[in-house]
Amino acid sequence: MIPTVSDTEIQTDSRLARCFERCRAQQRGALVTYVMAGDPDLDTSRALLEQLPAAGADIIELGMPFSDPMADGVAIQRAGQRALKGGQTLARTLDLVRDFRRQDDRTPLVLMGYLNPLVRYGERRFLEAAAEAGIDGLILVDLPYEHGATLTAQARDLGLARIPLVAPTTPGERLPALLAQGDGFVYRIAFNGVTGSRALDLDHADALERQVIALRRHRALPVAIGFGVRDAGSASGAARIADAVVVGSALVERLADEGVDAALALTRELAKAVREARS
C-alpha cells in the first residue's frame, strides 16, 4: 500500500485549487508562465506580470534570481544576472508580488528558485512574508524531500503549497515520500537536462503520458509538464498529456530579445494552443 497524505491535508480552498477547478470545468489544461522577478528591471517585470493573466497565463511562476543557478540553462541564467544587476533582492521580489496582488487576487503566484537566498532571509520569516504578500506556492530546485520536512510543514501551516519536482530519473520508490510533501500540483520535468536546453520530444509522448498517469495514481494532484515547451506545438502536445504546461526559457528569451509585447504575444499563442489541445 502506498502511503499518501489524507485528503484533509490537501489544500482544497486555495487559488491553485480553484484555478485547476476552473480549467477542468472548461475541459482544458492550464498554462503556467515563468518569468524572472526584476528581469530586466523592476518596472518592466511589473508591467509584464500585470498583463500575463489577460494574455492567457493561468498560473504565474516568478523566478527568484540567484547568482549560481545550477539547474538552469543559459536563458534563465542570463535573466537572473540581469535582475541581480538591476538590484533585485528577495525583499523586492515580495514587493513585486504585493503590487501584483493589489490588482489581481485570482491568478495563482508561485515562487521558483534556489534555497540559499531563503536561508539568508530566514526560512520561517520568508515563508510568513511570502504568505502575507499573496504567494500561493514554492518550487525549490535544490531542496530534495529528504531535507524538506520542516520547511514543508511550516509552508502548510501558512497555506503555501510546496510544489514537488519529479524527474525522468525519479524511481517509483521515491514517489510516495516525495509526493507526500507536495501540494498544489506536481511539476514533471520533461527531460534530463537544464531548463530550456532541449525541446519537448513529442515522438515519445506516449511514454511521458504513461508516467503522468502513474504519478496521478500515487497522489491526486494535478500534473504540470515543464522544460522544453517552446512553441504552440510543444505546448499543445504537453497539454494533451498533463493538467498544466509550463513555459519558461522561451518566454524569458522572447522578453529579452523583443520586449514585453512580444512576450505577451507568445503567451497568447501558447494559451490558444493549450486551450485547443484537447478539442
Binding site: 545550477m70 539547474a71 534555497l115 530546485v141 535544490d142 531542496l143 530534495p144 529528504e146 531535507h147 514537488p164 519536482l165 519529479v166 524527474a167 525522468p168 530519473t169 525519479t170 524511481p171 521515491r174 516525495l178 520535468i189 534530463n192
Partner: peptide, 12 residues
C-alpha cells in the same frame, strides 16, 4: 553537508 541538489540527480 547534506544533499541539496536537483531531483534529477538524487537517485544517481
Amino acid at each position: 553537508g547534506g544533499r541539496y541538489v536537483a531531483e534529477t540527480l538524487m537517485p544517481l
